[in-house]
Design a protein around this nucleic acid. Structure first.
Lengths: 179, 179
DNA sequence: TGATAATATATCAAAATGATACATAACAAA
DNA sequence: TTTGTTATGTATCATTTTGATATATTATCA
């Protein structure tokens, strides 16, 4: 059985900055975080419910008079402790499922042109994501008052450095496939 | 509902090279492939059963007289076609769950020393994996008779280039965290 | 002889995916 | 004005995957 719900710490991390609805959490995960983590409603809502009953978060209805119901979640002291304990835990599983690389590895089953094309698709995607990361970076560099910004910046730099290495590899790989 | 079982193509790819048992497949996945894909018995055996009944693979008992039963799987023509169709499909989902980067992103909830320590742990792991990748590479470079080897080499090069970028980032990040 | 590691198949609860259902609100276009 | 579309928001579900465990045989080494 899996040790625990990994999505919990993603949610706790986000809630450590501000109160959010389940929908907000999904938006955050689909934003900057999507470069290194993914998550769906199907895991977010059950996690929120479970963490509510174990006291890591507290839910309350937003006071928007007359408007539709909106459930906001707030991190408790117990939740902060859980987040800190996770940060201090040496365990870190880096799971990747790189379908691009998988196709590369088994590329021998098809003509070289097919792999070449797959590399070009990958290259295009990375190039466009890299542009996005560079925008994030310049935005972060404008405001330097916040300690959290340093961590966001380091994360974005990690993405940029990785993606630039990918692009260099693409150039090399294409050359080798063309002989 | 998830479109299909991703593990199927991993297995088909492996079987396109040689007949294997479920246990063999697991060993292959835990080897060089583990750098870009993971898979457990709990997905391998059900996939083999499903692909048997849909005619993508064929199972047979190994002829090891008197010894214990051993079920080998062989890829069919239909299986080869499925593998090729997947290679020719432009879709490629690159799912990563980088707990190290997640901890970095939420590092602001703890002292800098904690993030610094986490980066060091990551660095150590990457450094040791990089050594392994370099051994794979030099082994691949020795034997160049096979077309498949080109694809394995490109995959290993992808890993090496990525990991070297990680290490450079680690140095930079540690410096920034120490001010 | 005994211990332990490797081989081999298989199952299971818990977790995650990705899709969909349902409903309200905002907004522009016809 | 109504119509269509997009965004907001909560929630569920079948399918897939994880990670652990059960079971049993064979190999290895002390």
């Amino acid at each position: 059985m899996p040790k625990d719900r990994k999505i919990d710490v993603v949610i706790l991390g986000l809630l450590s900055h501000e109160d959010l609805t389940g929908y907000d959490i999904k938006k955050r995960i689909d934003g900057a975080i999507s470069f290194f983590w993914k998550g769906s409603f199907g895991s977010i809502y059950p996690s929120l419910t479970a963490m509510e009953s174990s006291g890591l978060v507290k839910k309350y209805k937003a006071d928007n008079s007359g408007n539709r119901e909106k459930i906001l979640y707030h991190i408790t002291d117990k939740g902060i402790d859980a987040l800190k304990a996770w940060l201090r835990d040496d365990m870190a599983s880096n799971e990747l499922k790189y379908e691009t690389v998988l196709k590369l590895y088994f590329g021998g089953a098809e003509e070289r042109q097919v792999t070449l094309h797959n590399i070009e698709l990958f290259e295009e995607k990375i190039r466009s994501d890299l542009d996005l990361l560079k925008i994030y970076k310049s935005n972060l560099e404008k405001v330097q008052d916040n300690e959290d910004h340093l961590y966001f910046l380091l994360t974005v730099m990690f993405g940029i450095d990785t993606y630039e290495a990918y692009l260099k590899w693409c150039t090399k790989a294409k050359k080798m496939l063309k002989q």
